[in-house]
Amino acid sequence: MAPTTRFRWFWWLVAYLALALGVIGIVLPVVPTVPFILLAAFAAARGSQRLHHRLLSHPRLGPMITDWQAHGALRRRAKWLATVMMLLAAALLLWLAPHLWIPLVASSIMTVVCIWLWLRPEPPTDPEPTAATAPPPD
């Protein structure tokens, strides 16, 4: 997609800001990583082709971004990891929060996100070549 030069700086800024928040989310369990990385890829495609290429070629992030861009899909491992991290964050909030309403509100939001996450499709697996799709023998 060819970005307009008028808004290219805006998309560049959004891409790097989202990437920074995604990296912070790797360390802090209450900051989501995946949505910020996907936002960074979306914005980088419009503002920084170099960053977009680096994200797509990253060994950990690249397949996730490609699955999302091609199919709107998330891998099952990512869904499980996100679910477990949300459960740990909810337990931590319940233990440390000064008021009960804080973990209740946060847990409610995490529950909605978790439901949405599990409703997303999984990327298609590459099927084994069948006789119809296999190349003919020499």
Rank of each mutant, 00 (worst) to 15 (best):
A78K: 00
A134M: 11
A78R: 01
K79A: 03
H99N: 10
Q69Y: 02
V112G: 05
H53R: 15
V105M: 13
A106T: 04
W9K: 14
S107C: 13
H71I: 05
L56N: 12
G62Y: 01
C114I: 05
F7Q: 12
P29G: 03
L51A: 07
W11A: 09
P29T: 08
G25E: 08
V34Y: 04
T66E: 14
H99C: 01
Y16D: 04
M110Q: 07
W12I: 00
P137N: 06
A82L: 08
T5I: 13
T130V: 11
A44S: 12
E128C: 05
V84S: 06
L94K: 01
T4R: 13
P63T: 01
W80C: 06
I65R: 03
L104E: 07
R76S: 13
I109L: 15
H71A: 12
R6K: 14
T130Y: 08
L28K: 05
I37W: 11
V27D: 06
P103T: 10
L96C: 04
I109D: 01
L56W: 03
M86S: 06
L51V: 07
A131S: 15
P35T: 10
V23C: 08
F36Q: 11
P103G: 08
I37S: 01
P136E: 11
L104D: 02
W12L: 14
M1S: 15
C114M: 14
P103K: 08
P98I: 02
L55E: 03
F7W: 13
T5D: 15
V14H: 06
T130K: 06
L38F: 05
D138W: 09
P29L: 09
A97T: 06
S48F: 01
A78Y: 04
W95L: 14
A89W: 00
L88R: 02
P127I: 05
S48P: 04
